[in-house]
Design a protein around this nucleic acid. Structure first.
Lengths: 260, 260
DNA sequence: GTCTCCGTTTACTCGGACATATCGGCGGCC
DNA sequence: GGCCGCCGATATGTCCGAGTAAACGGAGAC
């Protein structure tokens, strides 16, 4: 829910203000909400996809803004966004240059979206999955210790939605993400909650790979139900074990289709 | 919207262009180098400290920019930075309002710095410590599996610097942070490397609390050395155990001083 | 009472102008 | 001949004023 709200249905968010038929290769605003957001999206995707590599300089504010057919202000605001996410750094006379990958804020929701905007990087997906395997079992343990009745309700609700739909459609996958997010929320740890977007992306993409492997993979509901039951029963060890098993099964299902 | 009383030259962010008394104390030194960076720092600190709470609206670009005595461009670029970090959201007519805490990018290095800029939030420090306790043992295990000779060299170097200095001075604390960062680097996992800034902040602050408890706490070098040796020996289980012990000892040392 | 329309308010975008910092070369000094 | 410091070129940083677009809220019609 970070970026590109509903691009699938509406498509174009902007009415044709100009009556220019087929000129103006103006930047497509459909990719983001505001103009500078769209520019940031465009440049961010270009950087994440490797089109601009660390060390490259994007020298020439005027040149770039004219090339994109936007004002310098809009271009600069986009650069500030990228700068805030650690992708670039601007200095007078030196220009704006792409920072080394270590400085990138890879767990930022927008950066994550840009990383998966083009062709996804398999290695990075593996890294995210690894993070998930580290964080989620521990989070499940904490959730079992601290969950409120409301947390349990939200988790069970997501589980119910997973049961009704399947991982084959968007609603089912959304329910899956909600399930994992709800567990992180139940830890009462803001730092972990912040990771939910990143974890969610990992869940989403690994699921997609899983689906690619076989049309009807293992039914994920029982695994999830075990986690939910352990959390509801305030059983930390059980929740941690169940979640670890869930992640390991997912890894197993995913591995084969990621090795090509 | 009475800002901190200061258009009387105290709150001015801009250098005086009229007079030139050799060294104009710009705000840009410690806080942020550029003007919009300074504004973002100021507003970000205000938000993180609770001066502006979620739901509050910062309506009035002109009003705010004039109150800060900066141009609207600079103010807007600062807002873009805050927006990029999930702190605020701007919409026409609705104004710029502070987002709920769940949307905040709490693991962003800048946000982290702003959070600790004022009086640190004990609960948030606890949360970061918890994240550290989850991530670091697993990271140590991965590091032991994947470390290169260079990784080992960097880790040993940081350890040596920790030995020479102590946790009492800045160089020693920097060496401590470098040690933990080097281990995350050795995992070869970019997602984990991105967390080093957050982990580093947690290490830094928990150390500070530890120091507050007693003037000469337990010597941390042996614990760290055990981790380093296990990683150098490619002993995953040993590295994980040693790191877990390290974190638990640090937690133990820290807990008492955080309960007041 | 509900709906639609319109005006106001606010952020958004633009273009141009000036200020400032940095780099690289030129010239002078040692 | 080599080092040091001044100086101009250049690109980012900052400021200003105008005009556009979008969303809220109240007035009016049904």
């Amino acid at each position: 829910m970070t970026d590109d709200g509903g691009e699938g249905a509406a498509g174009r968010l902007v009415p044709e203000s100009e009556t220019q038929p087929a000129a103006a290769p103006r930047i497509a605003r459909g990719t983001g909400r505001r103009l500078h957001g769209a520019i940031a999206h465009k440049l961010g995707t270009a950087i994440l996809s490797g089109q601009y590599q660390p060390g490259d300089v994007l020298t020439g504010e005027v040149a770039f803004s004219e090339a994109l057919d936007v004002s310098r202000s809009a271009y600069r605001e986009a650069i500030q966004v990228l700068s805030a996410k650690g992708l670039v750094e601007s200095r007078p006379k030196a220009g704006t240059r792409v920072l080394p990958r270590q400085r990138w804020n890879l767990l930022d929701p927008d950066v994550l979206a840009w990383a998966f905007g083009g062709s996804p990087d398999l290695n990075f997906i593996r890294n995210l999955f690894e993070l998930r395997a580290i964080v989620e079992p521990a989070a499940a343990r904490l959730a079992a210790e601290r969950r409120t009745r409301d947390d349990v309700r939200v988790i069970k609700d997501a589980l119910g939605r997973m049961r009704r739909h399947t991982l084959a459609n968007d609603e089912g996958r959304a329910a899956d993400r909600d399930f994992h997010t709800a567990i992180l929320q139940a830890t009462q740890n803001d730092a972990l909650v912040t990771l939910s977007a990143s974890i969610g992306a990992a869940v989403s993409w690994t699921t997609r790979f899983k689906m690619r492997a076989r049309d009807l993979p293992r039914n994920p509901v029982p695994d999830h139900a075990r986690v939910a039951d352990a959390i509801a029963a305030s059983d930390p060890q059980g929740a941690e074990d169940a979640m670890r098993q869930l992640v390991e099964l997912a890894l197993e299902d995913t591995r084969s289709s990621m090795e090509d």
